[in-house]
Design a protein around this nucleic acid. Structure first.
Ligand SMILES: [Zn+2]
Ligand SMILES: [Zn+2]
Length: 343
DNA sequence: AAGCACGTAATC
DNA sequence: GATTACGTGCTT
């Protein structure tokens, strides 16, 4: 219950293609030779289930939340957000800015079907659920090791062109599985846990919406996108806070003073080495950070009562590193032409 | 090294 | 006050 959205019980125990729709017979024929295809079919079916689940859950949750009776306000909010059309603008316009969405990407379905562009892309299930249910596929949850990423049929996408994502293939895959974007306004006070979403919320850059996975690269001082800049600084704040509590190796030097306005960093500048015991904060941009919901099956999730740890799949990549090792963003903070990536 | 339990900072 | 989750130390 403590986990954001625990839907393990909804794993409809799909056992490979028993309920295939007539249209999916194709995969059966291919069963012997192409596993991925079979998986694809199974996954798509799963998607449908999730779609229904989300559709109903979201509706119920929203209703409940509205009436203030939601048992899990947060969960409700999350569900609602998940089910919410990603890019409102796409909904408003007759033609979406891009003819595909995540589901399409996952499924590798050519976005040729006009149906997908229909006004109601409502409950396109997200990747998250897939992960969550992956375990039920071949038996009981396999616990923490969670081979999810590698096993996931999405792994096919590993080698897929990442459209320039400055990350390795695996990462790219993760991106797809992360809530790509955002419910923006809906987020209201989702809290820090949703910062990822907030970030992704950038797409509304002045009404300019972008397809999931597409990267917007900006430079500081470019003045091109105020919204981006704002959000960006929010991240810098988080990062700055984190960077400043290194053991001493670090480079506090470069952190813009303006960024410190946020947290009330009692430590004053980090120059003093004053027992910077401040907790680091998640970066908010890495794949894990951008995940919105807990898997519910990892050791951290299951052990939340005593473990007090965030879901393993949501654990910030930056925080996994030892507090002394921050090489990536060190060089450029404040640089004249610092590049920023948004996806 | 990974996992776990705990204290507690940070936030809601 | 409740919840989330980082840091740390002990255990495996
Ligand atoms: Zn988890
Ligand atoms: Zn992160």
């Amino acid at each position: 219950m403590s986990s954001g959205v625990c839907m393990e019980s909804h794993a409809h125990g799909h056992t490979h293609g028993h309920t295939h729709t007539p249209g999916s017979d194709f995969s059966l024929q291919m069963e012997s030779c192409v596993n991925p295809v079979l998986d694809y079919s199974a996954q798509m079916e799963r998607y449908r289930s999730f779609a229904n689940f989300y559709k109903t859950s979201a509706a119920a949750a929203a209703a409940a939340a509205a009436s203030g009776t939601a048992p899990f306000p947060q969960a409700a909010a999350k569900i609602a957000r998940i089910a919410t059309p990603i890019f409102p603008s796409a909904r408003l316009s007759a033609m979406p800015a891009w003819p595909c969405d995540n589901a399409m990407l996952w499924g590798r379905k050519p976005a040729v079907n006009p149906a997908v562009n229909a006004p109601h892309r409502t409950a396109m299930p997200r990747a998250e659920p897939v992960n969550m249910h992956e375990h039920g596929k071949h038996g009981p949850p396999t616990d923490s090791s969670l081979p999810m990423a590698p096993d996931n049929f999405l792994s096919q996408l590993g080698a897929e062109p990442c459209r320039g994502l400055p990350v390795p293939g695996a990462e790219c895959m993760s991106q797809l599985k992360c809530p790509p974007s955002v419910p923006v306004a809906a987020a209201t006070s989702a809290g820090e846990a949703e910062r990822g979403g907030t970030f992704s919320g950038i797409p509304p850059l002045g009404g300019l919406s972008l397809p999931p996975g597409v990267i917007v690269m900006t430079t500081l001082h470019s003045g091109v996108s105020p919204a981006a800049t704002v959000s960006d600084s929010a991240f810098q704040m988080a990062n700055a806070a984190g960077d400043c509590q290194h053991g001493g190796t670090g480079s506090c030097s470069g952190s813009p003073a303006t960024l410190n306005t946020g947290g009330g960093n009692t430590n004053g500048g980090c120059g003093g080495n004053g027992a910077a015991k401040r907790k680091r904060k998640r970066c908010g941009v890495c794949a894990p950070c951008r995940r919105l919901i807990n898997c519910g099956v990892c050791s951290s999730c299951r052990n939340r009562k005593t473990g007090h740890q965030i879901c393993k799949f949501r654990k910030c990549e930056e925080l996994k590193k030892k507090p002394g090792t921050m090489l990536e963003r060190a060089p450029s903070v404040g640089g004249a032409d610092t590049f920023r990536w948004f996806f």
